[in-house]
Design a protein around this nucleic acid. Structure first.
Lengths: 337, 337
DNA sequence: ATAAATATCGCAATCGTTTGCGAATTCGTT
DNA sequence: AACGAATTCGCAAACGATTGCGATATTTAT
């Protein structure tokens, strides 16, 4: 099928010179005469010669490929990050190979293997919710392949990270709810072993404490999906325990909660304010539109790629954690100041 | 940085045998004695030897990489398709390299170049809305690299396609609106040079005609995003031209329309039914939840990968167009039968 | 015992490109 | 005229793995 792609040897043969001369001519090596260069370049142009990236990789031991592992490509936040990675990588002439773990630690391990044997120059990773053993990442680092984690990082591994200040953002969101008159707050939270969700939880808790609100663990409820958000609202409603302010671990959960509240004819934000997290695509679509924390996924990906490629090309060994700024996006699911 | 990855030569040197023997031992070549095989395999295991994919590629002229070009990774439908591609590719030990054109034909051309010089074995593509010249795709095909188009295909290029029957799906959706009592229908449409949107439009038009409804071009309105959907509803409302049934070219547009209708306190579906297209993530989130056409992106990607890899490995030359089934998803933005 | 068959392994070329080093040619200088 | 310098280019090795073929060594058959 594959018809023969033009190689440097083809050009050499046609011109009756050696392959080395062609190679040097194409990259303006001073040893080559102007005339030879001209002939070579013209023919290369005519035959649409493209250097064989694979041969170059073999030579240089660099593939110019970045491997990515995310839980799900379909998830809006992750695809935003990927898009950011792709942008910076493109600028630097890197390609990206994407794999997804589907929140399955086993798959994550096999993804590492795949990318390693694909000889990627580095990896950008957001781990599974359930990843507890990090040996596969240590193996990768052991081969000299750098990793940059984003969003969901791994505790106890010495490597670069790009995150946001989940604690601070949650604190601010909670305080906004308080300032706009909410007196009875609740937080829908995610799995505890994820640092980002526990940080958001602590931000919520500390904001309450600082503002002299009573706090106990009943104010933290496990719910981190559209369905669970819905269910939990119905449950709270039945038990007559609905709050007047709700801060959720992500936008989807908020959307689920709002969907239930709408069905119950409970007015948002008059009777209950809802604050999400992530500023995903859905936050503009909900009724009413959702106040949320902007977590700039594109920038996160872009930054991760920047750090990684810099590490690849300059072989620096310093380990840094980059904290990206967040900001509150106030829409119509919360009252105004 | 990159510490030396163990190669076949390392194993050979340690064991005092030749590289060729190691190579054959690892793949159970009958020429090699049992003892030698055992020694080689044990050492390979111990040193965590992984064959160098790049060297293999150079040898076989196969990279085991599939290149993907989509307008936007972030778009839910496309990321669903990518996820499907990734799944089948993973099963067949292929990697995927993803590029996005950002709806920019220039970028699409450069993406083709990038993937070509990355020596991908084949490509899966959904083109830009504005791509009018297809020469870059013809160039790719000219190098013997097969392409499978999905969703947005290219007219006049002889290559495989995976699509849905947009016409039929639109026809059925429209007919559903009619059957549930809508008498005054409108269609929010996309750019005309995209086959999929014009097919959806014709499906809408023919359903009207078949049901003896008057049809004229005023029933087709250009609006294919959340914002435009919103604006157009407000405009129609001001002009007192709101329909009692709305079929949109995609879910986002429907969501925008519903957002405006909600603000105008117009009841869905009592006063106006809304029918979307795609069954994206947002269709469950809208208030009320959106009736829509299921366009199985995951299956589309999976199928495209199947066709492509089959073509790569078996070097078949037949060109086929696979039409995937759709079905109506009836939720709460339309009345029931 | 000798030829033939078998078992086991190494040499070298190959994939496409790069690069140090040496070779050949031309030019300039005295 | 002769010698050194400069110009221009080719040879060959290297990257890691595969594979046809040839080279031993061992065993079997006659």
């Amino acid at each position: 099928m594959k018809s023969h792609q033009v190689t440097i040897k083809d050009i050499a043969k046609i011109l009756g010179i050696s392959a080395s001369t062609v190679s040097r001519a194409l990259k303006d090596h001073p040893d080559i005469s102007f005339e030879t260069k001209k002939k070579v370049k013209e023919l290369a142009e005519e035959l649409k010669y493209k250097p064989n990236a694979i041969a170059l990789s073999l030579q240089s031991n660099k593939s110019h490929i970045i491997g990515i592992i995310v839980p799900q490509i379909v998830h809006h936040f992750f695809s935003t990050v990927i898009s950011g990675i792709e942008e910076y990588a493109g600028e630097k002439a890197y390609n990206i190979i994407i794999t997804q773990s589907n929140e399955n630690p086993e798959k994550e391990i096999s993804n590492c293997r795949t990318l390693l044997s694909g000889r990627v120059d580095g990896m950008i990773v957001s781990r599974t919710k359930d990843t507890e053993n990090f040996d596969h990442f240590r193996n990768v680092l052991g081969t000299g392949t750098p990793i940059v984690f984003f969003d969901r990082t791994c505790h106890g591994i010495k490597t670069d990270k790009v995150v946001i200040d989940d604690y601070k953002a949650a604190y601010e969101a909670t305080e906004y709810l308080i300032k706009t008159g909410c007196r009875n707050l609740l937080h829908f939270s995610g799995p505890e072993n994820l640092k980002i969700t526990s940080k958001r939880m602590w931000g919520f808790a500390d904001a309450l404490k600082k503002n002299h609100f009573p706090f106990n663990e009943d104010l933290i409820i496990k719910a981190d999906s559209f369905e669970e958000g819905r269910k939990m609202i119905f449950k709270l409603h039945k038990e007559n325990k609905l709050p007047d302010g709700l801060f959720t671990v992500n936008d989807m959960t908020a959307a689920g909660a709002m969907s239930a509240l709408n069905e119950l004819k409970i007015k948002i934000p008059e009777e209950i304010s809802v604050f999400g997290f992530t500023n995903g695509a859905i936050s503009k679509i909900t009724s009413p539109s959702l106040s949320t924390v902007e977590q700039n996924g594109h920038l996160m990906g872009y930054t991760a790629a920047e750090i990684l490629i810099n590490k690849i090309e300059n072989e620096t060994h310093e380990v840094l954690t980059k904290i990206l700024p967040t900001k509150l996006i106030i829409r119509n699911s919360t009252r105004h100041l």
